[in-house]
């Protein structure tokens, strides 16, 4: 399998460029510190949630964009070998998404294990947090690839990446709130529900808060979500929407890679 061969070497390159190590250490120190200061596993999870929802998309989209630009010439060289474009795309993606996911999972999981934070019901919540983090890694790495493939200018590409991150982190919720405020006289539940499916970070937040069962932090979209679906079905819908977010940008990236003129 050419995909695996390419991924193996890309992986080696990424691992040697230490930023993945730093990324893992960041989660390790953060989680460990939260345990030392905060105590119980549940509270640590809650604090970690915000880090996961903000830091992972940012790092994945910025590093992903830079990574693809950085391997441009090498990509060209590999495309002159008897290699299918699809294999190469998958290899490049794996070379980025796999080490990032592993660094996050180990960096967060190990302190939990070391501090015995898995006692009680937190085990499944931790699993959900790790899953959400990996999902967001895949989503924002795919978006990064899509951006880097459609923009030749590196600075502009990086700017678009940051813009997309700001949009999903800050602007999106602002717009939702604005819409709710402006249209306060109308029933807004269903439109808001639909809107929340369009933001992977919001989906991640809803997914985690439904599991932690803390309605005070849920925000408008989360509250609507729970009321509409109930906790169980709500989680199912959120996971399904996240899965769609993983698949669609990836498929679009693959298509654009397939058609691209290098």
């Amino acid at each position: 399998m050419n995909t695996l061969k390419i991924a193996r070497y890309q992986l080696r390159d990424v691992m040697r460029s230490r930023w993945v190590l730093l990324y893992g250490i960041f989660f390790l120190l953060m989680t460990d510190a939260l345990f030392r200061f905060g105590g119980s596993g549940e509270r640590v999870l809650l604090s970690l949630m915000n880090v996961v929802l903000i830091a992972i998309p940012l790092v994945a989209i910025v590093l992903g964009t830079m990574y693809l630009y950085g391997s441009r010439e090498f990509t060209e060289l590999l495309l002159t070998q008897p290699v299918r474009r699809r294999s190469l795309f998958l290899g490049l993606f794996t070379g980025l998404a796999l080490p990032m996911s592993v660094a996050f999972v180990l960096g967060t999981g190990l302190p939990f294990w070391a501090h015995g934070g898995l006692a009680g019901g937190t085990g499944s919540s931790l699993l959900l947090l790790l899953g959400t983090g990996v999902g967001l890694t895949l989503i924002f790495a795919s978006l990064a690839f899509l951006i880097a493939l459609s923009t030749e200018d590196r600075i502009r590409g990086l700017g678009i990446s940051l813009g997309v991150w700001v949009f999903f982190t800050v602007v999106f919720n602002g717009l939702v709130m604005l819409a709710i405020y402006m249209l306060a006289d109308y029933p807004m539940e269903k439109p808001v529900l639909a809107l929340s499916l369009l933001n992977p970070i919001d989906l991640g937040r809803i997914l985690l808060l439904l599991s932690f069962d803390i309605s005070a932090l849920m925000g408008f979209t989360g509250a609507v979500f729970r009321r509409f679906f109930g906790s169980g079905l709500g989680q199912g819908v959120a996971i399904g929407a996240m899965a769609a977010w993983v698949v669609i940008p990836f498929a679009l990236g693959l298509r654009s890679f397939h058609r691209k003129n290098f």
Partner: peptide
Amino acid sequence: PEYRRRIGYMPQIARYPENL
């Protein structure tokens, strides 16, 4: 892509993964 098995290519600008 099989036809490229018969081709050797030397690009003008050669950049490779920096850490390999």
